[in-house]
Design a protein around this nucleic acid. Structure first.
Length: 190
DNA sequence: ATATGGATTGCCT
DNA sequence: GGCAATCCATATT
């Protein structure tokens, strides 16, 4: 996807990312997964967002141009992958919460140290571990870099569900989580 | 310099 | 369903 895809309202990008393919090329390996769950995060009007209190060394990429990765480390154990949205100077990002494994599944199993395919990428921390994405990969260009988004197969009638975002302590009233209904790899029901 | 808590996961009951 | 693990960014002193 080109930069203009990401340079739009964060909620719209989060919805339109559903069903597209996330790819990562690393060390001669290609890993691919179909995006089935996302969340939108805004700026000063969104208390759940890292960008709520303005730019910091960690979140500054959210304030820059669209189509970049924003990867952060949390809970002492886990990385989360976001794709930056909105025009340069306006913060915004879409958290990739779950994907359906398509290619590089053996590599994902090794990275996750487990065999069960349905537990490989059904959560934001799980999919970064499966893909091998860490905060070293924050700030990369999604349009040209090793992390990318492909158009994917054009499924005409995607049944997309909406819910409050997961794991946040404020801004729970906003319906900014989007997921593919009846998909096995969504992190949880709701 | 220190305190706090998190856009989670996996293991326990 | 409950909770510990675990480290770093951010805010506060």
């Amino acid at each position: 996807m080109g930069r203009s895809f990401f340079e739009r309202d964060t909620r719209v990008v989060a919805i339109e990312l559903i069903g597209r393919n996330l790819v990562f090329q690393s060390g001669g390996n290609l890993i691919r997964g179909r995006i089935v769950e996302t969340e939108a995060y805004y700026g000063s009007e969104d208390p759940a967002s890292h960008a709520y209190r303005g730019p910091t060394p960690r979140n500054q990429v959210m304030f820059g141009p669209a189509g970049k990765t924003y990867v952060y480390f949390t809970y002492g154990n886990h990385h989360c992958l976001n794709l930056v949205t909105e025009s340069d100077g306006t913060p915004g990002a879409v958290l990739i919460r779950a994907v359906e494994p398509l290619d590089g599944i053996e590599r994902m199993k090794r990275n996750r140290k487990m065999d069960s395919e349905h537990n490989l990428t059904n959560g934001p921390g799980k999919l970064t571990q499966a893909f091998g994405v860490t905060r070293e990969h924050s700030g990369l260009d999604v349009v040209s870099g090793p992390v990318g988004v492909e158009e994917g197969e054009k499924n005409t009638c995607l049944q997309i569900g909406v819910s409050p975002r997961i794991g946040i302590s404020s801004g729970q009233d906003k319906l900014l989580r989007f997921y593919l209904k009846n998909n096995l790899y969504v992190s949880r029901k709701g």
